[in-house]
Write a protein that binds this DNA or RNA. Structure first.
Length: 889
RNA sequence: GGGCGGAUAGCUCAGUUGGGAGAGCGCCGGCCUUACAAGCCGGAGGUCGCAGGUUCAAUCCCUGUUCCGCCUACCA
């Protein structure tokens, strides 16, 4: 028995971990910062350190791994920089939930102890996602793994913060921001998710101070009325011009507020009178600034009304709304209520409705940074793929607003600032200063806020490479070659990396950005826990193998669209893996006593037989197609090309044809050449597939007959086309064989001849050339079409009872019984009517003067030839049809 | 409100310089043929959303339209 004969069915479980460890131990994932080889680098979109791998990660990292493995095999010095981020709010929330279960909260614990708790949690769960990435096969350079809270990265954060502050690009200000009353922190605009909700529009009656008239304002949030500091009308609005400057008395709190004029007010909407609450609405805030209105907060940090809400002090904001509506209705302040669906902002982490709230926060002035980020994409220094996302990018960048970067949580990078308790000086510095530089006081109070997680993520492409130190890594691997990510973080992350990279490295962070879609379920729905449709990629890996999952994801990934994952697809690619496995088994069984190392490498192409030359030519084309597709991020195209070649050319045709040589010939030169081809093409297939299916390809690779220096397939050179085999003659001849075989098979299939039954076939042709080729390739045709008796000739007589197929200049007769002739007549009828339909279309073209004169001659020629083919085929089929009809009456 | 994407076989989708409509899965029929039943062979199935236009020729280009999805925005 052959020692390395493989099992009949491929079992991923037995091989995946083994090879991953092997690669890792041999250091194949490591980038070399000293190498002079051309560099290729990718930084991973860092997942949340305490997270677990979801299907989106699986897609994102599969695509990166395909690129990275491909480039390594192409000889690049590849760096795939891995790591995780600290996910400030999310992680803090998780740990707070744990505390809650213990009946504690973070305040009871204190800041220092709490942070220690989070680190503890990070130590516990931080390895999970990394080990899951390894299951997927991700070939990251783990020796360089980074975490956004690492010392080095924290240093980079401080450095950036200080430099931006010194340049006036970071400032601290009282401003209205999005506030999450549950997380109790400020959020950036991006961290608010807007959702339409059924709401109500309440019409409130505010009395004038000096008369018994009143204005009617419309609002969706009546509870904010205690913070109103004006009512605005449009100065153009004829109805209200005389009111401008008059005073109003707010109900309940009896505060006096003015009627002001502002063009912002839409005359058409509601009553045309707009209540202004500068402390709780973004627009009102702006209007308030213009008119120097007082800003009165009525809602506190946890979403409760404060003392400014008078009798409603202490009520939850929504409870207060209910109460206010009830009271106002009773008191006649509420005139009217109508249904009014509107967009409401929610915290992206906990989904609580955010509260626009006035507070003192830190901001990045983004406009100046955005300019060069826009420019570099416009100039093509960074290319966004697919291009349509550039528009979205520009749109956002051009309308960018200042970025609120301070968060009132504990887990994150502490803002490096201190306040003088004496003179209120603000000091921004890496270390705590000994005393206030302004007044020399040593009563310095540290800032308690931390930075937005995305602030540190924005530095990721260079902070991970050692910045602000000038490292070899930066020199060699920055800018990175490509960033692979989903569109959902285009603004959050990509745009901000662009700004920071340009600002601090003086160059874009990546040459290309490849944006992939979202993974959805087979119905096109987003995966979500609440929907209960989540798939666990690890479960899929367990059931189908990592290779099948990877190939599925790659084959579903086309630029610009989401992908709908279905299990049947993954199952299909498990079958594909098995097909590769069995093709390799076949090869191994037929490579006994064959030693590739003893074969001359310079055999001229003519010495190989037709199938050998053909498959090598097809391999050339496949290599070119795969490379082209990968260069253009057409993952679906690349996988499709490979699937098609491996299954439908290599397995379906080549292996079957090779059997002729392998089975029948004794040891000899012809057999050795086919064995050589078999092995070399299989090796090339494995290498082409390796970026997509790393595990199975390595497993087989290691079982193939040993070449003198066979190493891991990971470091094998990517196949290159061998131009000697770009052989159109071989292609044409094989096309002919396939056409003939298919024609006979169709007869067999349609006439219900059992596949095992050997048949007689007659090939009649008037062309000597065709006759010659048929004779040359007779044995191939006989083998594949199961023809025991093969007759070729110009004047062959049509057997009285026979089925007919017509190929180009060739009639094929398969003798039948008389009883089968009715079936044959039906079959011919069907074929004829099909031809008829096509013929009509073609004739229509040819009878069109305009077409003949205006279409390119080669097209006209082509159509003419097609017409001729249709004509002769139909003629022959009809002739046969008539004869049969005569015979069977 | 603005912007973007999609509509092709029963399902999921390819179709990149306009010239004979494809794949996978599913379905139907025949086969355990010594690599593979996770397989082999054959087959059926489409007015390419709708209406116009450009062109000798449109699934492809242009205009309009319907439906679906996404992003984005300050109409209370």
């Amino acid at each position: 028995m052959v020692a390395n004969l493989l099992d009949k069915i491929y079992d991923p479980h037995q091989v995946e971990d083994k090879w991953y460890h092997y690669w890792e131990e041999l250091g194949y994932f490591r980038a070399d910062e000293n190498s002079e080889q051309k560099a290729y680098s990718i930084v991973i979109p860092p997942p949340n350190v305490t997270g677990v791998l979801h299907i989106g990660h699986a897609l994102n990292n599969t695509l990166q791994d395909i690129l990275v493995r491909f480039k390594r095999m192409k000889g690049y010095n590849v760096l795939w920089m891995p790591g995780t981020d600290h996910a400030g709010i999310a992680t803090q929330n998780v740990v707070e939930k744990q505390l809650l279960e213990e009946g504690l909260d973070r305040h009871a614990l204190g800041r220092e102890k709490f942070i220690e708790r989070v680190w503890e949690w990070k130590r516990q769960s931080g390895g999970t996602i990394i080990s899951q990435l390894k299951k997927l096969g991700a070939s990251c350079d783990w020796s360089r793994e980074r975490f956004t809270m690492d010392e080095g990265l924290s240093e980079a954060v401080k450095e950036v913060f200080i430099r931006l502050y010194q340049e006036g690009l970071i400032y601290r200000s009282h401003y209205i921001i999005n506030w999450c009353p549950r997380c109790q922190t400020a959020l950036s605009d991006l961290e608010v998710e807007h959702q339409e909700e059924p709401g109500k529009l309440y019409h409130l009656k505010y009395p004038f101070k000096e008369s018994d008239r009143f204005v009617i304002v419309a609002t969706t949030r009546p509870e904010t009325m205690f913070g109103d500091t004006a009512v605005a009308v449009n100065p153009e609005d004829e109805r209200y011009q005389s009111w401008i400057g008059e005073k109003i008395i707010l109900p309940v709190v009896h505060r006096e507020i003015p009627i002001i004029a502002d063009h912002y007010v839409d005359v058409e909407f509601g009553t045309g009178c707009l209540k202004i609450t500068p402390a709780h609405d973004f627009n009102d805030f702006e209007i308030g600034l213009h008119h120097h209105l007082e800003q009165i907060k009525v809602i506190d940090e946890v979403g409760r009304m404060n003392k400014n809400a008078g009798p409603y002090d202490g009520l939850d904001r929504f409870e207060c709304r209910r109460q206010v509506v009830e009271d106002f209705e009773r008191d006649g302040v509420l005139l009217r209520v109508e249904d009014y669906p509107h967009m409401v902002g929610h915290c992206y982490r906990c989904k609580t409705i955010v509260e626009p709230n006035l507070s003192l926060q830190w901001f990045v002035k983004t406009k100046p940074l955005a300019e060069s980020a826009i420019e570099s994409v416009r100039e093509g220094r960074t290319r966004i793929i697919p291009e349509m996302w550039e528009k979205t990018y520009f749109d956002w960048m051009e309308n960018i607003r200042d970025w609120c970067i301070s968060r009132q949580i504990w887990w994150g990078h502490r803002i490096p600032a201190w306040y003088c308790g004496q003179c209120e000086e603000v000091i921004v510095s890496k270390e705590m200063p000994a005393s206030c530089p302004a007044c020399a006081s040593n009563r310095l109070i540290p800032e308690t806020d931390v930075l937005d997680t995305w602030f540190s993520s924005a530095l990721w492409p260079f902070s991970t490479m050692g910045w602000p130190k000038e490292t070899k890594e930066l020199k060699r691997f920055y800018p990175t070659s490509v960033l692979v990510t989903g569109f959902d973080i285009l603004f959050f992350w990509v745009a901000r990396m662009m700004m920071m990279g340009l600002k601090f490295m003086g160059d874009v962070p990546f040459r290309e950005v490849y944006i992939h879609g979202l993974v959805r379920d087979e119905k096109g729905e987003k995966y979500s826990k609440t929907r209960g449709n989540v798939v666990d990629p690890l479960d899929l890996i367990d059931r189908f193998g990592a290779d099948a999952l990877r190939f599925t994801l790659a084959s579903l990934t086309m630029p610009g669209s989401d992908l709908k994952l279905s299990e049947s697809r993954t199952e299909g690619y498990r079958h594909f893996a098995n097909k590769i496995w069995n093709a390799s088994r076949f090869a191994l069984m037929n490579l006994e006593h064959f030693n590739i190392n003893e074969v001359p490498q310079d055999t001229p192409p003519e010495e190989f037989n037709l199938p050998d030359r053909w498959i090598r030519g097809r391999l050339n084309q496949t290599i070119r197609d795969v490379e082209k597709a990968l260069d253009n991020y057409q993952f679906n195209e690349a996988s499709h090309v490979l699937y098609q070649f491996v299954w439908h050319e290599f397995c379906d045709w080549y292996l079957e044809l090779a059997k002729l040589t392998l089975y029948q010939e004794k040891e000899g030169k012809g057999k050795a050449l086919t064995q050589q081809t078999l092995l070399e093409v299989l090796e090339a297939i494995l290498k082409l597939l390796h970026p997509f299916m790393p595990f199975i390809t390595e497993e087989i690779w290691q079982k193939l007959p040993q070449r003198i220096e066979r190493q891991s397939i990971m470091v094998a050179p990517f196949p290159r086309p061998d131009r000697q085999f770009d052989d159109t003659m071989a292609t044409d001849q094989m096309d002919q064989i396939m056409e003939v075989v298919n024609a006979v098979r169709r007869i067999r299939g349609e006439m219900n001849l059992p596949p095992g039954e050997q048949i007689v076939a007659l090939f009649r042709t008037q062309k000597e050339e065709i006759e010659k080729q048929l004779r040359t390739n007779q044995s191939f045709i006989q083998l594949l079409a199961m023809v025991k008796e093969f007759r070729v000739g110009e004047h062959l007589e049509r057997p009285p009872y026979s089925a007919l197929a017509v190929c180009q200049d060739l009639e094929i007769f398969v003798p039948m019984n008389r009883s089968q002739m009715e079936e044959e007549a039906r079959r011919l009828q069907k074929e004829i009517s099909k031809l008829e339909k096509e013929n009509v279309l073609v004739m229509k073209k040819l009878s069109n003067e305009q077409f003949l004169s205006k279409a390119p001659p080669e097209i006209v020629q082509e159509v003419k030839e097609r017409a001729a083919t249709f004509y002769t085929r139909r003629e022959k089929l009809e002739e046969s049809f008539k004869k049969i009809k005569e015979m069977i009456g």
